[in-house]
């Protein structure tokens, strides 16, 4: 059973529906026992970084998350669920993250090119393609340059570039997903990315 961690941050139903469409059962839960008992764990999330960390703390979910990651269970972070894995974020001040992946979460800053008609808009919203750097198990059957749906204003900068699974070009080249051992986490939304997104969810659920 896949456990989707519910900490009041964002639309978990669409993640659940996404898994159901590819034949994987999952529950939405904030019960630490359910999370520890699950075969796979998903950390979704939209909203502000600080609020997310506070909610994880208040619901007593940080320890279960660290436990399942240390146990080697397949772990999927989506959007803010990717950013939370990092050391710290600069969203509305500096806030500490889970520090499972060393690095920072920073804002797109295109202010230096102002004055041009071709403003690069923030949030980065819409369909963009991924450049695959590593054959992560979750990217199985996904062609290079496939399109995924993004909506975010901040992106991750890992210290160790070896964790970068894909990059995406939006004014700059940023890390659009990471892969480290049992952890895969992506900035884009597989649950909103039609066929290619469903493939990632299927690959995740298929992991043993």
């Amino acid at each position: 059973m896949i456990a989707i961690i519910d900490y009041d941050m964002g639309n978990l139903r669409s993640v659940q529906k996404g898994f159901e469409r590819v034949g994987h059962k999952c529950i939405i839960t904030r019960n630490p026992k359910d999370i520890l008992d699950a075969s796979h764990v998903v950390l979704p999330g939209v909203g502000a970084f600080k609020d997310c960390m506070e909610n994880l703390q208040n619901y007593g979910l940080i320890e279960p998350i660290l436990n399942v990651i240390n146990d080697g269970k397949p772990f999927l972070g989506i959007c803010l669920g990717l950013q939370l894995l990092f050391t710290e974020s600069e969203e509305f001040g500096i806030h500490k993250g889970l520090d499972i992946i060393k690095g920072r979460v920073v804002r797109f800053d295109f202010s230096n090119i102002e004055g041009s008609d071709d403003i690069i808009k923030v949030p980065h919203m819409g369909w963009n393609n991924i450049k695959i750097l590593q054959d992560a198990p979750l990217l199985k059957d996904i062609p290079d340059n496939s399109y995924f749906y993004f909506v975010h204003s901040y992106y991750v900068v890992p210290e160790d570039e070896d964790v970068i699974a894909t990059k995406t070009d939006y004014g700059i080249e940023f890390t659009s997903s990471i892969w480290k051992d049992n952890i895969f986490a992506c900035q884009f939304h597989p649950e909103k990315s039609q066929k290619m997104g469903s493939m990632i969810l299927k690959n995740f659920g298929d992991l043993k």
Partner: peptide, 8 residues
């Protein structure tokens, strides 16, 4: 590159 979106 980010694509232009077509929205019904």
């Amino acid at each position: 590159m980010l694509t232009k979106r077509i929205i019904p």
